[in-house]
């Protein structure tokens, strides 16, 4: 088993990064595998999955976005190239621009609201007693745990036109107040889920409700790591709550906030399940976002998978641009 030739080969394959491998000098025991091969063998299944299910389809998606892929092609006729026709077509379509607007607006508003509410609750949790904090954490966890489809179902029910509790609650408001705020006082039978704007209002409430717990718990975890002396010192110096938050909490939690922001952006950019339930399938074209638009183009008859793929490419590029900064940050700052 003393396979000296593998040692030589191992030496011929210096590691790409980092410290010298102290262990590669050691002989393998019983496994019969030269040391340097082991990590590659361990990686094979994972690599196959990532290459076959994620990287290769990405390339296919890009290629398909330049092809006409309809019913005949799905049945096996080779796809023909149409140049950039799919792209010119979607850029000329109004639905694309309204989808893009819906996607971006929804993401920006939801990310902002989730972060604000989540941070506020996280800060609150940090100041509650242990028992009370556990109680609240268990509560918000149960909101976070609800599957996206069920979230959609719940909020569709809460905002139901006839028997929904939101309309009931709005009717409770004093008439003058309701008039003042919304210009109306009778909410009975108000259909929330017919119009794109109100669909997105409900969607925002739904997604913020379901995702603020994660932010809150993460912020709480971050706060626990900040030494109490800092706050003590700030208090002694007469710093107010807001100022303490701005000058101590915020800077120290910056890495946490960076991650949370990016994760929220990724999640909210491609929201699908909740929207699908709230609008009852891909029917209301004005309320499409890019995911839904791509889905509808590709899978509603007649299937236009080529333009579906083109929309998907646009969505992917958008996400990559938005998150590129974050990826670079991680690659740069972390010894990986």
């Amino acid at each position: 088993m003393a396979n000296t030739s593998t040692l030589a080969r191992g030496g011929g394959n210096p590691p790409a990064s980092g410290r010298p491998p102290t262990r590669s000098r050691r002989r393998t025991k019983a496994s019969g595998m030269p040391e340097w091969v082991i990590p590659y063998v361990l990686l094979i299944p994972g690599l196959l999955v990532i290459a076959g299910l994620l990287l290769y389809p990405t390339i296919q998606m890009v290629i398909m976005s330049f092809q006409k892929v309809g019913l005949r092609q799905i049945r096996g006729v080779p796809a023909e190239s149409v140049g950039t026709e799919n792209y010119t077509q979607i850029f000329e379509s109004e639905i694309f621009w309204s989808s893009l607007r819906n996607t971006v607006t929804f993401a920006v508003v939801t990310v902002a609201l989730t972060l604000i509410l989540g941070t506020a609750v996280g800060t609150l949790l940090n100041r509650l007693s242990r028992k009370m904090s556990t109680f609240v954490v268990v509560g918000i966890m149960s909101a976070w745990a609800v599957p996206p489809v069920a979230q959609g179902v719940i909020w569709r029910w809460l905002f139901d036109a006839d028997a929904g509790i939101i309309n009931w609650a709005l009717n409770l408001l004093p008439d003058w107040f309701s008039e003042l705020l919304f210009g109306r006082s009778d909410w009975t039978g108000e259909p929330w889920l017919n119009d794109a704007f109100t669909i997105y209002l409900v969607l925002i409430v739904c997604v913020v409700w379901a995702s603020f717990p994660f932010i809150a718990v993460s912020v709480l975890a971050g706060l626990k790591g900040i030494p109490a002396e800092l706050y003590e010192a700030a208090r002694v110096d007469g710093s107010g709550a807001w100022r303490t938050f701005r000058t101590i909490t915020l800077p120290l939690l910056r890495p946490v906030f960076a991650v949370l922001t990016i994760l929220s952006i990724i999640w909210n950019f491609k929201v699908f399940s909740q929207l699908y339930v709230l609008m009852g399938g891909p029917n209301n074209r004005e309320a499409f976002n890019l995911s839904m638009f791509s889905f509808a183009e590709a899978f509603r008859s007649p299937p236009k998978m080529g333009s579906g793929a083109a929309i998907a490419v646009v969505l992917t590029l958008l996400l990559l641009v938005v998150t590129a900064f974050y990826v670079r940050q991680i690659v740069k700052t972390e010894e990986m």
Partner: peptide
């Protein structure tokens, strides 16, 4: 970072 929704079409095929 690649949205799963984007891989839907090729994976379906």
């Amino acid at each position: 970072m690649i949205p799963a929704e984007a891989l839907l079409i090729p994976l379906f095929l």
